[in-house]
Simulated assay, not measured.
Amino acid sequence: MIWLTWRQFRTQTLLAAALLAAAAVYLLITGTQLRHSYSADLLSCQTQSSQYTCAGLLNGLQTQYNGPLDLLELLVMATPALVGIFWGAPLIAAELERGTHYMVWNQSVTRGRWLAVKLAAIALASIVTAGVISLLMTWWASPLDTMSGNRFGTQAFNARNVVPLGYAVFAFVLGVTLGLVIRRTLPAMAATLAVFIAVQFLVTIVVRPNVMPSTTITMPINQTTMSQAARFDRSQAVTGPVTIDLPTPAGSWGLSESPALNSAGQPIPTSEVLTCWNQMISRGPLVIKGGNKPFGPLGACLAPLNLHVDVSYLPADRYWPLQWIETALYVALAALLAAFCFRRIRRSS
Rank of each mutant, 00 (worst) to 15 (best):
R184W: 08
M147G: 06
P294W: 00
L186Q: 04
V211P: 02
S282T: 13
R98T: 14
A335F: 10
L57D: 05
S348A: 11
A168T: 04
L42N: 12
A94E: 05
P315L: 09
I217G: 05
A328G: 12
G166T: 09
A230T: 09
M103R: 14
D245P: 04
V25H: 10
R346P: 01
G149R: 08
A17K: 06
Q228H: 10
V83G: 01
T177P: 01
K293I: 03
L43Y: 00
A264W: 06
S50H: 07
S148A: 12
K118F: 08
S37H: 08
T270A: 12
I345N: 01
L322K: 07
I281L: 15
I2K: 11
I122G: 01
T327R: 08
L246F: 06
L96C: 01
N59H: 13
S235M: 02
L307P: 02
E326H: 10
V162W: 02
A229E: 00
E95V: 03
N150I: 08
L165V: 10
A94K: 13
A190T: 03
I133M: 11
G265H: 07
E326T: 15
M212E: 13
L202V: 14
S50E: 07
T13E: 08
S50W: 04
G67Q: 15
L82Q: 07
K118N: 14
Q200D: 14
N262D: 15
